[in-house]
Design a protein around this nucleic acid. Structure first.
Lengths: 194, 194
DNA sequence: TCCCTACGATAACATATGTTATCAAGTATT
DNA sequence: AATACTTGATAACATATGTTATCGTAGGGA
Protein backbone atom coordinates (compact mmCIF):
# COMPACT_ATOMS: atom_id res chain seq x y z
CA UNK A 1 0.00 0.00 0.00
CA UNK A 2 1.22 3.47 -0.93
CA UNK A 3 4.28 1.67 -2.20
CA UNK A 4 5.63 4.75 -3.95
CA UNK A 5 6.13 6.57 -0.67
CA UNK A 6 7.81 3.78 1.23
CA UNK A 7 11.26 4.95 2.26
CA UNK A 8 10.89 8.24 0.43
CA UNK A 9 9.44 9.74 3.57
CA UNK A 10 10.78 7.32 6.18
CA UNK A 11 8.94 8.84 9.08
CA UNK A 12 5.63 7.95 7.47
CA UNK A 13 6.34 4.25 7.01
CA UNK A 14 4.71 3.29 10.28
CA UNK A 15 1.43 4.73 9.04
CA UNK A 16 1.37 2.59 5.92
CA UNK A 17 2.07 -0.49 7.99
CA UNK A 18 -0.68 0.32 10.42
CA UNK A 19 -3.32 0.25 7.71
CA UNK A 20 -2.16 -2.85 5.88
CA UNK A 21 -4.57 -5.13 7.81
CA UNK A 22 -7.58 -3.12 6.67
CA UNK A 23 -6.99 -3.97 3.05
CA UNK A 24 -9.13 -6.52 1.31
CA UNK A 25 -7.25 -8.97 -0.88
CA UNK A 26 -8.79 -9.77 -4.23
CA UNK A 27 -7.77 -12.31 -6.86
CA UNK A 28 -9.34 -11.05 -10.04
CA UNK A 29 -9.42 -12.68 -13.48
CA UNK A 30 -8.74 -10.67 -16.63
CA UNK A 31 -11.42 -8.11 -17.53
CA UNK A 32 -12.69 -7.87 -13.97
CA UNK A 33 -14.22 -4.49 -13.23
CA UNK A 34 -12.87 -2.80 -10.11
CA UNK A 35 -14.82 0.44 -10.48
CA UNK A 36 -17.62 1.16 -12.90
CA UNK A 37 -18.20 4.41 -14.76
CA UNK A 38 -21.04 6.28 -13.05
CA UNK A 39 -20.50 4.74 -9.62
CA UNK A 40 -18.70 6.35 -6.73
CA UNK A 41 -15.17 5.38 -5.91
CA UNK A 42 -15.08 3.63 -2.56
CA UNK A 43 -11.54 2.26 -2.39
CA UNK A 44 -7.93 2.98 -2.90
CA UNK A 45 -6.70 0.26 -5.25
CA UNK A 46 -3.25 -1.28 -5.01
CA UNK A 47 -1.85 -3.75 -7.55
CA UNK A 48 0.33 -6.51 -6.18
CA UNK A 49 0.43 -8.51 -9.38
CA UNK A 50 -1.04 -8.03 -12.84
CA UNK A 51 -2.16 -4.91 -14.65
CA UNK A 52 -5.13 -2.65 -14.95
CA UNK A 53 -6.47 0.08 -17.21
CA UNK A 54 -8.73 3.09 -16.77
CA UNK A 55 -11.09 3.92 -19.61
CA UNK A 56 -14.38 5.56 -20.50
CA UNK A 57 -17.04 4.76 -23.02
CA UNK A 58 -17.61 7.02 -26.02
CA UNK A 59 -20.39 6.04 -28.40
CA UNK A 60 -20.03 2.38 -27.52
CA UNK A 61 -16.25 2.45 -27.87
CA UNK A 62 -13.64 2.05 -25.15
CA UNK A 63 -11.20 4.93 -24.79
CA UNK A 64 -8.28 3.95 -22.58
CA UNK A 65 -6.74 6.75 -20.54
CA UNK A 66 -4.05 5.10 -18.46
CA UNK A 67 -2.36 1.79 -17.57
CA UNK A 68 -1.21 0.61 -14.15
CA UNK A 69 1.14 -2.20 -13.14
CA UNK A 70 2.67 -4.00 -10.17
CA UNK A 71 3.23 -1.91 -7.05
CA UNK A 72 1.19 0.99 -8.32
CA UNK A 73 -1.83 2.42 -6.56
CA UNK A 74 -4.73 4.28 -8.04
CA UNK A 75 -8.21 5.62 -7.53
CA UNK A 76 -10.59 7.66 -9.63
CA UNK A 77 -9.22 10.84 -8.13
CA UNK A 78 -12.12 13.21 -8.72
CA UNK A 79 -14.71 10.63 -7.71
CA UNK A 80 -12.83 9.76 -4.56
CA UNK A 81 -12.14 13.32 -3.47
CA UNK A 82 -15.43 14.93 -4.46
CA UNK A 83 -17.64 11.90 -3.87
CA UNK A 84 -19.05 12.20 -7.39
CA UNK A 85 -19.80 9.44 -9.92
CA UNK A 86 -16.64 8.20 -11.55
CA UNK A 87 -16.02 9.25 -15.15
CA UNK A 88 -13.81 6.20 -15.64
CA UNK A 89 -14.13 2.45 -15.48
CA UNK A 90 -11.21 0.59 -13.92
CA UNK A 91 -10.68 -2.94 -15.18
CA UNK A 92 -8.00 -5.64 -14.96
CA UNK A 93 -6.19 -6.52 -18.15
CA UNK A 94 -4.45 -9.65 -16.87
CA UNK A 95 -5.47 -11.91 -13.99
CA UNK A 96 -4.35 -9.80 -11.04
CA UNK A 97 -3.91 -9.70 -7.31
CA UNK A 98 -5.44 -6.52 -5.94
CA UNK A 99 -5.67 -4.94 -2.51
CA UNK A 100 -8.55 -2.61 -1.74
CA UNK A 101 -8.42 -0.11 1.11
CA UNK A 102 -11.89 1.27 1.88
CA UNK A 103 -12.28 5.02 1.67
CA UNK A 104 -13.16 5.23 5.34
CA UNK A 105 -9.66 4.10 6.29
CA UNK A 106 -7.98 6.28 3.71
CA UNK A 107 -9.66 9.33 5.23
CA UNK A 108 -8.67 8.19 8.68
CA UNK A 109 -5.10 7.74 7.51
CA UNK A 110 -4.97 11.20 5.97
CA UNK A 111 -6.35 12.63 9.19
CA UNK A 112 -3.59 10.95 11.19
CA UNK A 113 -0.92 11.99 8.72
CA UNK A 114 -1.84 15.62 8.62
CA UNK A 115 -0.09 16.34 11.89
CA UNK A 116 3.21 15.00 10.53
CA UNK A 117 5.68 17.59 9.25
CA UNK A 118 6.49 15.38 6.25
CA UNK A 119 2.86 15.33 5.17
CA UNK A 120 2.79 18.62 3.26
CA UNK A 121 5.96 17.88 1.28
CA UNK A 122 4.57 14.44 0.46
CA UNK A 123 1.25 15.84 -0.74
CA UNK A 124 3.04 18.45 -2.82
CA UNK A 125 5.31 15.92 -4.43
CA UNK A 126 2.45 13.56 -5.11
CA UNK A 127 0.30 16.18 -6.75
CA UNK A 128 3.17 17.72 -8.69
CA UNK A 129 3.94 14.25 -10.02
CA UNK A 130 0.39 13.59 -11.17
CA UNK A 131 0.07 17.05 -12.63
CA UNK A 132 3.25 16.61 -14.61
CA UNK A 133 2.06 13.24 -15.85
CA UNK A 134 -1.16 14.59 -17.31
CA UNK A 135 0.53 17.70 -18.65
CA UNK A 136 3.06 15.56 -20.49
CA UNK A 137 0.31 13.41 -21.98
CA UNK A 138 -1.52 16.53 -23.09
CA UNK A 139 1.53 18.24 -24.56
CA UNK A 140 2.41 15.08 -26.43
CA UNK A 141 -0.83 15.30 -28.38
CA UNK A 142 -0.09 18.87 -29.43
CA UNK A 143 3.55 18.21 -30.19
CA UNK A 144 3.77 14.73 -31.67
CA UNK A 145 2.18 12.68 -34.44
CA UNK A 146 0.64 9.31 -33.49
CA UNK A 147 3.74 7.63 -34.90
CA UNK A 148 5.99 9.74 -32.67
CA UNK A 149 3.78 9.01 -29.66
CA UNK A 150 4.10 5.30 -30.36
CA UNK A 151 7.87 5.53 -30.62
CA UNK A 152 8.02 7.51 -27.41
CA UNK A 153 5.94 4.86 -25.68
CA UNK A 154 8.20 2.16 -27.06
CA UNK A 155 11.25 3.98 -25.73
CA UNK A 156 9.99 5.23 -22.38
CA UNK A 157 7.49 2.58 -21.32
CA UNK A 158 8.11 -0.57 -23.37
CA UNK A 159 6.48 -2.78 -20.74
CA UNK A 160 3.13 -1.29 -21.76
CA UNK A 161 3.60 -2.43 -25.34
CA UNK A 162 4.78 -5.85 -24.25
CA UNK A 163 1.91 -6.59 -21.90
CA UNK A 164 -1.12 -4.69 -23.13
CA UNK A 165 -3.32 -5.75 -26.09
CA UNK A 166 -2.85 -3.52 -29.06
CA UNK A 167 -6.36 -2.11 -29.36
CA UNK A 168 -6.14 -0.69 -25.84
CA UNK A 169 -2.88 1.00 -26.77
CA UNK A 170 -4.43 2.32 -29.98
CA UNK A 171 -7.19 4.18 -28.16
CA UNK A 172 -4.67 5.42 -25.59
CA UNK A 173 -2.63 6.90 -28.45
CA UNK A 174 -5.78 8.37 -29.98
CA UNK A 175 -5.80 6.31 -33.19
CA UNK A 176 -7.74 3.32 -34.53
CA UNK A 177 -6.32 -0.15 -34.03
CA UNK A 178 -5.93 -0.51 -37.78
CA UNK A 179 -3.79 2.56 -37.95
CA UNK A 180 -1.63 1.48 -35.04
CA UNK A 181 -1.00 -1.76 -36.88
CA UNK A 182 0.04 0.27 -39.93
CA UNK A 183 2.40 2.36 -37.83
CA UNK A 184 4.05 -0.76 -36.45
CA UNK A 185 4.52 -2.34 -39.84
CA UNK A 186 5.89 0.89 -41.25
CA UNK A 187 8.45 1.11 -38.46
CA UNK A 188 9.35 -2.57 -38.91
CA UNK A 189 9.94 -2.01 -42.62
CA UNK A 190 12.10 0.98 -41.78
CA UNK A 191 14.29 -1.04 -39.42
CA UNK A 192 15.03 -3.83 -41.92
CA UNK A 193 17.02 -2.86 -44.99
CA UNK A 194 14.45 -3.26 -47.65
CA UNK B 1 -2.24 38.45 -6.49
CA UNK B 2 -3.50 34.92 -5.87
CA UNK B 3 -6.84 36.29 -6.88
CA UNK B 4 -8.44 32.87 -7.12
CA UNK B 5 -8.06 32.25 -3.43
CA UNK B 6 -9.34 35.57 -2.22
CA UNK B 7 -12.38 34.96 -0.03
CA UNK B 8 -12.30 31.23 -0.70
CA UNK B 9 -10.08 30.82 2.32
CA UNK B 10 -10.87 34.02 4.21
CA UNK B 11 -8.31 33.49 6.90
CA UNK B 12 -5.54 33.67 4.37
CA UNK B 13 -6.52 37.03 2.88
CA UNK B 14 -4.19 38.95 5.14
CA UNK B 15 -1.24 37.04 3.70
CA UNK B 16 -2.04 38.02 0.12
CA UNK B 17 -2.36 41.63 1.17
CA UNK B 18 0.93 41.58 2.99
CA UNK B 19 2.83 40.65 -0.15
CA UNK B 20 1.12 43.02 -2.56
CA UNK B 21 3.81 45.70 -2.13
CA UNK B 22 6.55 43.33 -3.24
CA UNK B 23 5.08 42.95 -6.69
CA UNK B 24 6.61 44.70 -9.65
CA UNK B 25 4.16 46.36 -11.99
CA UNK B 26 4.81 45.95 -15.69
CA UNK B 27 3.07 47.50 -18.69
CA UNK B 28 3.86 45.19 -21.55
CA UNK B 29 3.03 45.60 -25.26
CA UNK B 30 1.69 42.67 -27.28
CA UNK B 31 4.18 39.85 -27.90
CA UNK B 32 6.29 40.74 -24.90
CA UNK B 33 8.12 37.75 -23.48
CA UNK B 34 7.64 37.25 -19.74
CA UNK B 35 9.58 34.00 -19.48
CA UNK B 36 11.74 32.41 -22.13
CA UNK B 37 11.98 28.69 -22.88
CA UNK B 38 15.23 27.39 -21.39
CA UNK B 39 15.48 30.00 -18.65
CA UNK B 40 14.51 29.52 -15.04
CA UNK B 41 11.25 30.85 -13.76
CA UNK B 42 11.89 33.60 -11.25
CA UNK B 43 8.44 35.10 -10.69
CA UNK B 44 4.86 34.39 -10.05
CA UNK B 45 2.98 36.23 -12.77
CA UNK B 46 -0.38 37.90 -12.24
CA UNK B 47 -2.45 39.44 -15.02
CA UNK B 48 -4.36 42.58 -14.16
CA UNK B 49 -5.31 43.41 -17.73
CA UNK B 50 -4.72 41.74 -21.07
CA UNK B 51 -3.93 38.18 -21.97
CA UNK B 52 -1.03 35.82 -22.21
CA UNK B 53 -0.16 32.44 -23.70
CA UNK B 54 2.27 29.65 -22.85
CA UNK B 55 3.91 27.83 -25.74
CA UNK B 56 6.95 25.86 -26.79
CA UNK B 57 8.88 25.65 -30.00
CA UNK B 58 8.79 22.49 -32.11
CA UNK B 59 10.87 22.51 -35.28
CA UNK B 60 10.57 26.25 -35.63
CA UNK B 61 6.83 26.24 -35.00
CA UNK B 62 4.94 27.63 -32.01
CA UNK B 63 2.79 25.15 -30.13
CA UNK B 64 0.45 26.94 -27.73
CA UNK B 65 -0.42 25.05 -24.58
CA UNK B 66 -2.59 27.40 -22.56
CA UNK B 67 -4.15 30.87 -22.43
CA UNK B 68 -4.48 33.18 -19.44
CA UNK B 69 -6.64 36.25 -18.89
CA UNK B 70 -7.48 38.99 -16.40
CA UNK B 71 -7.17 38.06 -12.73
CA UNK B 72 -5.37 34.83 -13.43
CA UNK B 73 -1.96 33.95 -12.07
CA UNK B 74 0.59 31.60 -13.51
CA UNK B 75 4.13 30.38 -13.45
CA UNK B 76 6.01 27.65 -15.26
CA UNK B 77 5.20 25.20 -12.51
CA UNK B 78 7.97 22.65 -12.96
CA UNK B 79 10.62 25.31 -13.53
CA UNK B 80 9.51 27.26 -10.50
CA UNK B 81 9.28 24.28 -8.13
CA UNK B 82 12.30 22.31 -9.31
CA UNK B 83 14.43 25.28 -10.32
CA UNK B 84 14.97 23.78 -13.77
CA UNK B 85 14.94 25.51 -17.19
CA UNK B 86 11.42 26.26 -18.32
CA UNK B 87 10.00 24.12 -21.11
CA UNK B 88 7.60 26.90 -22.01
CA UNK B 89 7.77 30.47 -23.19
CA UNK B 90 5.25 32.86 -21.68
CA UNK B 91 4.27 35.80 -23.87
CA UNK B 92 1.63 38.51 -23.91
CA UNK B 93 -0.96 38.37 -26.67
CA UNK B 94 -2.47 41.81 -26.11
CA UNK B 95 -0.90 44.87 -24.48
CA UNK B 96 -1.15 43.89 -20.83
CA UNK B 97 -0.67 45.05 -17.28
CA UNK B 98 1.29 42.44 -15.37
CA UNK B 99 2.41 42.08 -11.76
CA UNK B 100 5.49 40.03 -10.98
CA UNK B 101 6.17 38.63 -7.53
CA UNK B 102 9.80 37.44 -7.20
CA UNK B 103 10.28 33.81 -6.25
CA UNK B 104 12.02 34.81 -3.04
CA UNK B 105 8.81 36.33 -1.70
CA UNK B 106 6.65 33.47 -2.92
CA UNK B 107 8.78 31.03 -0.94
CA UNK B 108 8.62 33.31 2.08
CA UNK B 109 4.86 33.47 1.73
CA UNK B 110 4.51 29.70 1.51
CA UNK B 111 6.71 29.38 4.57
CA UNK B 112 4.43 31.71 6.51
CA UNK B 113 1.30 30.03 5.26
CA UNK B 114 2.35 26.52 6.14
CA UNK B 115 1.48 27.01 9.79
CA UNK B 116 -2.10 27.94 8.92
CA UNK B 117 -4.70 25.19 9.22
CA UNK B 118 -6.29 26.29 5.96
CA UNK B 119 -3.05 25.84 4.06
CA UNK B 120 -3.30 22.09 3.41
CA UNK B 121 -6.87 22.27 2.12
CA UNK B 122 -5.89 25.18 -0.11
CA UNK B 123 -2.90 23.33 -1.55
CA UNK B 124 -5.01 20.26 -2.13
CA UNK B 125 -7.71 22.20 -3.89
CA UNK B 126 -5.21 24.09 -5.99
CA UNK B 127 -3.42 20.98 -7.14
CA UNK B 128 -6.62 19.00 -7.70
CA UNK B 129 -7.82 21.87 -9.86
CA UNK B 130 -4.70 21.96 -11.98
CA UNK B 131 -4.61 18.20 -12.25
CA UNK B 132 -8.20 18.12 -13.44
CA UNK B 133 -7.48 20.85 -15.97
CA UNK B 134 -4.66 18.95 -17.64
CA UNK B 135 -6.50 15.65 -17.41
CA UNK B 136 -9.50 17.18 -19.17
CA UNK B 137 -7.29 18.58 -21.91
CA UNK B 138 -5.66 15.19 -22.35
CA UNK B 139 -8.91 13.24 -22.37
CA UNK B 140 -10.36 15.65 -24.90
CA UNK B 141 -7.69 14.65 -27.41
CA UNK B 142 -8.53 10.97 -26.98
CA UNK B 143 -12.27 11.50 -27.00
CA UNK B 144 -12.97 14.29 -29.46
CA UNK B 145 -12.22 15.21 -33.05
CA UNK B 146 -10.65 18.63 -33.69
CA UNK B 147 -14.06 19.88 -34.77
CA UNK B 148 -15.60 18.74 -31.49
CA UNK B 149 -12.76 20.33 -29.54
CA UNK B 150 -13.38 23.61 -31.33
CA UNK B 151 -17.10 23.46 -30.56
CA UNK B 152 -16.37 22.67 -26.95
CA UNK B 153 -14.03 25.66 -26.77
CA UNK B 154 -16.69 27.84 -28.37
CA UNK B 155 -19.23 26.70 -25.80
CA UNK B 156 -17.13 26.58 -22.64
CA UNK B 157 -14.56 29.32 -23.18
CA UNK B 158 -15.80 31.62 -25.95
CA UNK B 159 -13.67 34.52 -24.69
CA UNK B 160 -10.63 32.62 -25.93
CA UNK B 161 -12.01 32.53 -29.46
CA UNK B 162 -13.02 36.15 -29.29
CA UNK B 163 -9.70 37.52 -28.12
CA UNK B 164 -6.99 35.20 -29.37
CA UNK B 165 -5.62 35.14 -32.95
CA UNK B 166 -6.72 32.06 -34.80
CA UNK B 167 -3.33 30.47 -35.45
CA UNK B 168 -2.63 30.31 -31.73
CA UNK B 169 -5.94 28.55 -31.20
CA UNK B 170 -5.17 26.18 -34.06
CA UNK B 171 -1.97 24.91 -32.47
CA UNK B 172 -3.72 24.70 -29.11
CA UNK B 173 -6.34 22.44 -30.71
CA UNK B 174 -3.61 20.42 -32.38
CA UNK B 175 -4.47 21.29 -35.99
CA UNK B 176 -3.06 23.57 -38.69
CA UNK B 177 -4.45 27.08 -39.03
CA UNK B 178 -5.77 26.18 -42.47
CA UNK B 179 -7.76 23.32 -41.07
CA UNK B 180 -9.17 25.40 -38.26
CA UNK B 181 -10.37 27.86 -40.87
CA UNK B 182 -12.04 24.99 -42.71
CA UNK B 183 -13.73 23.82 -39.52
CA UNK B 184 -15.11 27.29 -38.90
CA UNK B 185 -16.47 27.68 -42.41
CA UNK B 186 -18.02 24.22 -42.28
CA UNK B 187 -19.80 25.07 -39.02
CA UNK B 188 -20.93 28.43 -40.46
CA UNK B 189 -22.38 26.69 -43.52
CA UNK B 190 -24.15 24.25 -41.22
CA UNK B 191 -25.76 27.05 -39.23
CA UNK B 192 -27.14 28.99 -42.18
CA UNK B 193 -30.01 27.49 -44.15
CA UNK B 194 -29.32 28.66 -47.61
C1' DT C 1 -0.24 58.63 -48.11
C1' DC C 2 2.34 54.48 -48.74
C1' DC C 3 4.32 50.40 -47.40
C1' DC C 4 4.78 46.54 -44.52
C1' DT C 5 3.09 43.10 -41.59
C1' DA C 6 -0.43 40.32 -39.22
C1' DC C 7 -4.47 37.96 -39.83
C1' DG C 8 -7.80 35.12 -42.04
C1' DA C 9 -10.18 32.72 -46.11
C1' DT C 10 -9.82 29.59 -49.82
C1' DA C 11 -8.11 26.33 -53.53
C1' DA C 12 -5.39 22.38 -55.11
C1' DC C 13 -2.94 18.76 -54.11
C1' DA C 14 -0.48 15.28 -51.00
C1' DT C 15 -0.55 12.53 -47.01
C1' DA C 16 -2.55 10.64 -42.80
C1' DT C 17 -6.10 8.37 -40.67
C1' DG C 18 -10.75 6.09 -40.19
C1' DT C 19 -13.96 2.33 -41.64
C1' DT C 20 -15.24 -2.01 -43.05
C1' DA C 21 -14.18 -6.41 -44.32
C1' DT C 22 -11.41 -10.54 -44.50
C1' DC C 23 -7.95 -13.76 -43.01
C1' DA C 24 -4.80 -16.21 -39.76
C1' DA C 25 -3.02 -17.66 -35.40
C1' DG C 26 -3.46 -18.52 -30.57
C1' DT C 27 -6.10 -19.59 -26.46
C1' DA C 28 -9.80 -20.73 -23.66
C1' DT C 29 -14.16 -23.46 -23.26
C1' DT C 30 -17.10 -27.15 -23.99
C1' DA D 1 -11.68 -32.67 -31.01
C1' DA D 2 -14.66 -28.98 -31.96
C1' DT D 3 -16.02 -24.37 -31.12
C1' DA D 4 -15.92 -19.70 -30.06
C1' DC D 5 -13.32 -15.71 -28.69
C1' DT D 6 -9.39 -12.67 -28.72
C1' DT D 7 -5.73 -10.67 -30.93
C1' DG D 8 -3.37 -8.89 -34.83
C1' DA D 9 -2.33 -8.10 -39.89
C1' DT D 10 -3.74 -6.39 -44.27
C1' DA D 11 -6.47 -4.52 -48.30
C1' DA D 12 -9.65 -1.19 -50.38
C1' DC D 13 -11.94 2.65 -50.05
C1' DA D 14 -13.67 7.11 -47.81
C1' DT D 15 -12.73 11.05 -45.15
C1' DA D 16 -9.81 14.16 -42.46
C1' DT D 17 -5.97 16.84 -42.20
C1' DG D 18 -1.46 18.94 -43.69
C1' DT D 19 1.12 21.84 -47.07
C1' DT D 20 1.81 25.36 -50.14
C1' DA D 21 0.26 29.10 -52.55
C1' DT D 22 -2.72 33.02 -53.48
C1' DC D 23 -5.77 36.63 -52.27
C1' DG D 24 -7.98 40.33 -49.46
C1' DT D 25 -8.47 43.17 -45.51
C1' DA D 26 -7.08 45.87 -41.62
C1' DG D 27 -3.90 48.31 -38.90
C1' DG D 28 0.67 50.29 -37.68
C1' DG D 29 4.61 52.80 -38.61
C1' DA D 30 7.66 55.47 -42.03
Amino acid sequence: MFFHFRNKFPRLNAYWDKYLPFQERLEAPAKAILLEEGKKSRHYIFIEKGCVRAFFNKNGEDKTVQFFFENEGLTSFDSFVNNTPSLLTIETIEPSIIYLLPKKYVLQLVEELSSEPEFVPMILQMSAQRQLHYMNEFVSFIRDTPEQRYQRLLKDRPHIIRRVPQHYIASYLGVSKVHLSRIKSKLARGRSHF
